[in-house]
Structures are given as C-alpha cells and as structure tokens.
Amino acid sequence: MNLMAPTDEIASPKRPEDYADRSLDCLVAIEPAFQELAARAQAAGWSENDVSAALLELAHQHINGISADRKTKLHIEDAARSIV
C-alpha cells in the first residue's frame, strides 16, 4: 500500500552537493509525508503517543542501521587491504 499518491512527490535537494540548509530543506520536503503517516496511523486507532513513540523508534533503528552498514563497509575494506 502506497502512503502517498504518485503525484505527491518529495522534492529533491536544491543542489547535489552539500549546502548550508540541506538538512532543513530535507525536513521541509519530507514533513508532509511524515504528517500523513502519523495521521493515518492515528485514524487506524493508534494514539498520538503510540505513533510518536513508534516513529521515533523507527528513526533510531534507521540511524543504527546506517551506522552498522558503514562499520561493515569499513571492516570489509580493511580486510580487502590486508589481503592485497
């Protein structure tokens, strides 16, 4: 099930490289989808606290997954260098 209609696209960054307000621009771009997800969860019967806690936990899991992936990549690169 899609959370957003295909016409509800998330805006791309203004530039491909890093820039001062990139994080803020990302926040503004994804906020409508975030609000829609929270509203849909509440409409399904979850409390505001349930939804907030779940979204926060998902964000933490996402960050931890990114960190673990980076560490794994570094370990693989170190192992490959030691073989060569």
Rank of each mutant, 00 (worst) to 15 (best):
E77G: 01
A44P: 00
Q35M: 12
L37Y: 05
E9L: 11
E31P: 01
V84T: 12
A44V: 11
A33N: 00
L56F: 15
P6F: 08
A44M: 13
R70G: 02
T7H: 10
N49I: 05
T7Q: 12
Y19G: 01
V28I: 15
R22F: 08
Q35G: 00
M4F: 03
L58D: 02
D25K: 02
S82A: 05
T72H: 11
N2H: 11
S12R: 15
Q42G: 05
V28Y: 15
A5F: 01
A29C: 04
I83S: 08
A54R: 03
K71T: 11
D78V: 02
L56K: 09
K73T: 06
E77Y: 06
I10L: 10
C26Y: 15
I66W: 09
A54I: 03
I63W: 13
A38C: 11
A29E: 07
S23M: 03
E31G: 00
G45P: 09
E9A: 07
E36C: 10
A54Y: 06
G65M: 07
A59L: 12
A39V: 07
L74W: 05
L74Q: 15
F34I: 15
A44I: 02
E77N: 08
L58E: 04
A38D: 09
S23Q: 09
G65A: 03
I63L: 07
A33H: 02
P6K: 03
D21M: 07
A41Y: 08
P16N: 11
Y19Q: 05
H60F: 15
H60A: 09
I83L: 14
T72P: 01
R40M: 07
K73E: 11
A38M: 10
E48I: 06
I76W: 04
L24H: 15
E48N: 08
A44Y: 15
S52D: 10
A80K: 06
R15N: 04
S23C: 02
L55D: 01
C26R: 15
L55I: 08
A38G: 01
H62Q: 11
A29T: 07
V28A: 12
G45W: 14
S52P: 00
L74D: 13
Q61V: 03
P13N: 10
A29K: 07
F34E: 12
R81H: 11
E36R: 14
L3K: 00
D18S: 08
R22M: 12
A68Y: 10
R81Y: 13
D18N: 10
A79D: 11
Y19N: 04
S82P: 00
K14Y: 04
A29S: 14
H60E: 13
A11E: 15
P13D: 07
P13A: 03
I83D: 05
A79E: 07
A79V: 02
H62C: 01
R81V: 08
L37Q: 00
I10W: 12
P32H: 03
S52C: 11
R70D: 13
I76E: 13
K14E: 12
Q42S: 01
D50W: 09
R40A: 01
I30P: 05
R40C: 04
A41P: 02
E9P: 00
L37E: 02
P6D: 12
P6C: 06
D50R: 06
F34S: 09
D25S: 00
E57C: 00
Q61G: 13
E57H: 03
